[in-house]
């Protein structure tokens, strides 16, 4: 990115202030050929964009992911939103927030009630889920089970938006929900996972009623740390019976069950 091989190219010039790069990750001092980018910087950009595009477009294998969770001894169910394909998902956020009628029927079958609904969804990066969701769940689920609260099976959703957890939580009559979802990829990271927590998840909740833990990935907020933060937040939500902006305004008391 700094045009280090410029010297082999007679027609491009490096920018002799590459030392400025120590202050920022921004793409500075790239060098140039006429007004254009040197070939190496030009293709490096394309590689970063390709990674982001693939993370958005590669289908999420929900069945396979469900099997991996079940193999660890946690009940899991695969579901689908009302968005039938990726193009619809990208243009109709409303359809990504609701379960398909088949999935709604599946979750409406008689099941033990749950205090906390657990959801995993592809969101805008199937890669984020493939890479980072299991490492979060492996820490998070034992922490939540230890509180004695009843957990839903892990609901693994394709073409899901954050608010899909409202629909799921409603069907379980849950007091709280947590959804692990792929964030919109940037050029520098295509595998960021976001964790959204909602008190009394019901259809129609708005974003200010949620708490968010974002940039969960190796190189960002490590999955194990994110899992501990989420467990603490859930404890506070049960303590104060609230989430979102209203929870943020309440004093941060140490949750007794975490001490």
């Amino acid at each position: 990115m700094s045009g280090t091989d410029d010297k082999t190219l007679a027609t491009s010039s490096s920018d002799d202030w590459t030392w400025l790069s120590r202050y920022t990750e921004a793409r500075i001092a790239l060098g140039r050929c006429g007004p254009g980018l040197p070939t190496s910087a030009h293709l490096a950009f394309q590689a970063a964009h390709a990674e982001a595009r693939d993370a958005v477009l590669k289908p999420f294998d929900a069945e396979q992911f469900t099997a991996e969770i079940a193999a660890r001894g946690w009940p899991a169910l695969a579901v689908h939103s009302r968005a039938t394909d990726r193009a619809t998902y990208l243009q109709r956020p409303d359809e990504g927030r609701l379960l398909s009628s088949a999935s709604e029927a599946l979750l409406s079958e008689p099941r033990p009630p749950a205090d906390i609904a657990i959801v995993v969804a592809d969101g805008l990066s199937s890669r984020a889920v493939q890479v980072n969701a299991l490492p979060v769940l492996e820490i998070l689920l034992p922490l939540l089970a230890a509180t004695g609260r009843r957990l839903s099976p892990v609901i693994v959703a394709s073409q899901g938006r954050v608010a899909l957890a409202d629909h799921v939580g409603e069907l379980f009559g849950a007091s709280a929900s947590i959804i692990l979802i792929g964030e919109r990829p940037g050029l520098s990271a295509a595998d960021s996972l976001g964790l959204y927590l909602t008190w009394l998840p019901r259809r129609g909740r708005v974003d200010s009623e949620r708490n968010c833990i974002s940039n969960v990935r190796q190189g960002g907020l490590p999955p194990a740390d994110a899992a501990k933060q989420a467990a603490n937040l859930l404890a506070r939500m049960f303590q104060h019976q609230a989430a979102g902006v209203s929870l943020a305004r309440l004093p941060q008391l140490p949750p007794p069950e975490e001490r």
Partner: peptide, 12 residues
């Protein structure tokens, strides 16, 4: 934007 890549807003 440096290199067309906004590293804060995550868009091009």
């Amino acid at each position: 934007v440096p290199g067309a890549d906004d590293i804060m807003l995550n868009y091009q």
